[in-house]
């Protein structure tokens, strides 16, 4: 099943946050809590699925020279819809995410998938790609946001109304919900993902070549060097 293959790849093998390392601006800025991360993820997924579907439908009608402006207009339309609906129906979330909702327009994940996938594939596959990438993005943001919220605030909130989980017994590191904490958490998670990937490949008897632009010869922390 091609549909499922395209859907699954976004969640793990081509996860936008941990593997493609796209959309880093919202990934670092809004992941101060699990709730914000989920909200951002759902908003971006909606835009991604809708824009992929529309762009795939009109891909043969758009002249190549003006394809990027057309993609941006389609994406901006859906972002504005999300912005309006969210400020009407989820004002608290809208206040938290603030500027980062309009900025979904320039999120590399969305334009990247429009250019690299939706403009070359039929509509059903593009929708699958949108759902998969959206889920992967949401998952990445949620892991990042969850880690930062637990360490930085000592709580874990899924949604207002559902009682939040308080993790007591230690003094939260405020640093983790500030800007530096975003970089620290993302770096640690990326290293962990690389380690897991290298380990699973090793078990299957394969080796993963080190990234072309990195000199790994002297470092033994991850498994690329050995």
């Amino acid at each position: 099943m091609r549909f499922w293959k395209e859907l699954i790849k976004g969640v793990w093998a081509e996860n936008p946050i941990f593997r493609l390392v796209l959309g880093m601006c919202p990934a670092l800025a809004v992941t101060t809590s699990l709730e914000n991360s989920l909200g951002m993820g759902v908003a971006a997924t909606f835009v991604l699925v809708c824009s992929n579907a529309v762009i795939s439908t009109i891909r043969n009608l758009i002249p190549n020279k003006v394809r990027i402006p057309c993609f941006i207009v389609v994406i901006a339309t859906f972002v504005t819809i999300v912005d309006l609906v969210m400020s009407g129906f989820a004002p608290a979330l809208h206040a938290n995410l603030g500027l980062f909702i309009p900025l979904i327009v320039v999120n590399c994940v969305i334009l990247g998938r429009a250019e690299a996938f939706a403009s070359k594939h039929p509509i059903m596959l593009s929708i699958a790609d949108g759902i998969g990438m959206g889920l992967g993005f949401t998952l990445g943001l949620s892991i990042l946001g969850g880690c930062r919220e637990i360490l930085g605030a000592g709580t874990l909130t899924v949604w207002q109304g559902i009682p939040q989980l308080s993790i007591g017994g230690f003094k939260p590191m405020v640093l983790m919900i500030l800007a530096p904490g975003g970089f620290i958490a993302l770096g640690c998670l990326l290293a962990l993902m690389n380690y897991v990937q290298a380990e699973t490949a090793k078990r299957k008897g394969k080796t993963i070549p080190p990234p072309a632009n990195l000199d790994c010869r002297h470092c033994t922390i991850c498994k690329f060097g050995s």
């Binding site: 758009i62 003006v66 339309t77 819809i81």
Partner: peptide, 15 residues
């Protein structure tokens, strides 16, 4: 080119 962008923008505006 002009026509395509105009049509897409008009549809987006209407929506």
């Amino acid at each position: 080119l002009i026509l395509t962008v105009t049509i897409i923008c008009s549809l987006a505006g209407a929506l």
